[in-house]
Computed example of a mutant assay.
Amino acid sequence: MRYLFLAVLLFSAVACTTPNGNKLSFSSLNPQTDISPANPTVSYEMYSWYNGQDWAYAIIENGVKLTTSFKQITEDDNIIVGSAYLKDKLLEMPRGTKVYWNLKRIKGFQMPDEKTIESIVSAAKKAGVSVEVIAWPN
């Protein structure tokens, strides 16, 4: 009986080690990754314009407030100035977030050059944020 107990104990010790001899822990068996999906009902509208010195952006959560004018959107407290800062903001958003880059036919909004647009969309995509460009012609 004693040998059976020792055999089970030895088997348990061997089964709970990695090939290099390190013991496995619970955390190594369950990697700490964020697999929780973002709230699919949360989406944002984004607007862009050139403020005379740099590109400025406004990101507004859909349904938070109705925005209908250039003045109302550009006077918001949460304006982001500079494409690099916009990328940082997009990287902070939860994976699965949807952002609609929208002009809504509101006079005054503009799109940056194609290279800048592609850079922003690419950075967001790497972070798991979907940026859909909706630019309606005048």
Rank of each mutant, 00 (worst) to 15 (best):
M1R: 09
R2M: 12
Y3N: 10
F5G: 08
A7C: 10
L10E: 05
F11A: 15
S12E: 11
A13H: 03
A13N: 06
V14K: 07
C16D: 07
C16S: 13
P19V: 10
S27M: 08
P31M: 00
Q32E: 11
T33Q: 12
T33M: 09
D34K: 11
D34G: 07
S36V: 13
S36M: 08
A38Y: 00
A38T: 00
N39W: 01
V42P: 00
S43T: 06
E45N: 14
E45F: 14
M46G: 09
M46S: 06
Y47F: 15
S48L: 00
S48A: 13
S48P: 07
G52V: 04
Q53F: 10
D54T: 10
Y57E: 02
Y57T: 07
Y57A: 01
A58H: 05
E61W: 06
N62W: 00
G63N: 03
G63C: 10
L66N: 12
L66R: 11
L66V: 13
T68Q: 13
S69M: 04
F70V: 03
F70R: 01
K71P: 01
E75L: 09
V81T: 15
S83D: 10
S83L: 02
A84Q: 14
A84N: 09
Y85W: 10
Y85A: 13
L86A: 01
L86W: 05
K87T: 05
K87P: 01
K87E: 07
K87R: 11
K87C: 09
K89A: 15
K89C: 08
K89V: 11
P94A: 04
R95Y: 04
R95D: 07
G96A: 02
G96S: 01
V99L: 03
Y100E: 07
Y100W: 11
Y100T: 08
W101E: 05
W101Y: 05
L103G: 13
K104L: 11
I106C: 07
F109I: 05
F109D: 06
Q110T: 13
Q110C: 03
P112Y: 04
D113W: 01
K115V: 12
K115Q: 14
T116G: 05
I117H: 07
E118T: 12
E118L: 08
E118D: 15
S119C: 02
S119N: 13
I120P: 03
I120V: 15
S122R: 14
A124R: 00
G128Y: 02
G128L: 04
V129D: 00
V131I: 15
E132V: 15
V133Y: 07
V133E: 03
I134D: 15
